[in-house]
Amino acid sequence: MSDLLAALLLGIIEGITEFLPISSTGHLLIAEHWLGQRSDLFNIAIQAGAILAVVLIYRQRLWGLALGLREAAQRDYAIKLAAAFAVTAAGGLLVKKLGWTLPDAIAPIAWALIIGGVWMVLAEHFAARRAQALGERTEITWTVAILVGVAQVVAGVFPGTSRSAATIFVALLFGTTSRVAATEFAFLVGIPTMFAATGYELLDVYRSGGMAHEDWSALSIAFVASAVTAFVAVKWLLRYIQSHRFTAFAVYRVLFGAALLWLLPAAA
């Protein structure tokens, strides 16, 4: 397989999986096992493409928040977004200081996919019961804001967990009963989180001289592929959750994780 085609496939995988609750990091680590490992700059670039897509989708919401900071409700929402990001940033820096690195073995990622899928089914069940008992609640509480920040750190430490799944279900279990409201908050807090992580990693790559030997053609193709597919995937997900639960994603995770464990001897 040519290097450009491999880059295209990795960009598409990142774009599809970054914001769906199925774990982009887990899918990329698995894909790189067969398509070849990429530089840190490459992985940063395709993540930036996915972030750009979400910024474009939520541009009106973001602009409305910026213009409406004088309104109490808008200001409260923005402060809670900032608090969730601050918790994530502090936790992320702590993880970095401890010297944690992503595992490159398939088995732990496969198990994380399976366990995460089972957890999603249980979380969906309890969230539905909670919604039935409390009715429609769209408010984001301080408890949710803090726990969403913690969930992002946990998802970053364990590939296969899924940042979007962790944050959405934390919101549904401990605050809002609306899938739409939970998803919006999870995605909005993901924007500064991923921009900060991308900037941090980019600065690290620049300081270490990692930009000098990069294949910029492959990187550009992957960036565009990630941005386009992420835009389509997020648009589809936002429509899907208005009338569907997340169960299909949980089933996919379990089946995919089980298939990886079954194929593990051949993949090793």
Rank of each mutant, 00 (worst) to 15 (best):
D3R: 03
L5R: 00
L9Y: 03
L9F: 13
G11R: 11
I13R: 00
E14T: 10
L20C: 08
T25Y: 01
T25P: 03
L28K: 02
L28T: 05
E32M: 15
H33G: 13
G36V: 13
R38L: 05
R38G: 03
D40R: 04
L41I: 11
I44K: 02
I46G: 07
A48Q: 03
A50P: 08
I57V: 12
Y58V: 13
G64D: 05
G64V: 07
L65T: 12
L67R: 15
A73G: 09
Q74A: 10
Q74H: 11
R75Q: 13
D76I: 09
K80P: 04
L81H: 03
A86S: 13
A90Q: 01
A90P: 00
V95H: 03
K96H: 10
K96D: 13
G99E: 04
T101A: 13
P108H: 11
A112P: 00
L113A: 03
G117S: 12
W119N: 00
W119G: 13
V121W: 14
L122I: 14
L122S: 06
A123N: 05
E124H: 05
V144Q: 14
V148Q: 12
G149Y: 05
V157P: 00
F158W: 11
S162W: 10
S162T: 06
T167D: 05
I168D: 12
F169V: 11
L173T: 06
G175S: 09
G175N: 09
G175T: 02
T176F: 11
R179W: 05
V180P: 01
F185S: 06
I191Q: 02
A196C: 03
A197Y: 09
G199C: 08
E201F: 05
L202Y: 04
V205L: 06
S208V: 03
G210S: 02
H213S: 11
H213K: 07
D215K: 07
W216Y: 15
W216C: 07
S217Q: 14
A218M: 07
A222I: 13
A225C: 10
S226Q: 02
S226H: 04
A227K: 10
T229V: 13
V234L: 12
K235N: 08
K235V: 09
W236L: 15
Q242L: 11
R245I: 00
A258S: 14
L260Y: 05
L260M: 13
L261Q: 06
W262D: 01
L263V: 11
P265Y: 09
A266T: 04
A266H: 05
A267G: 01
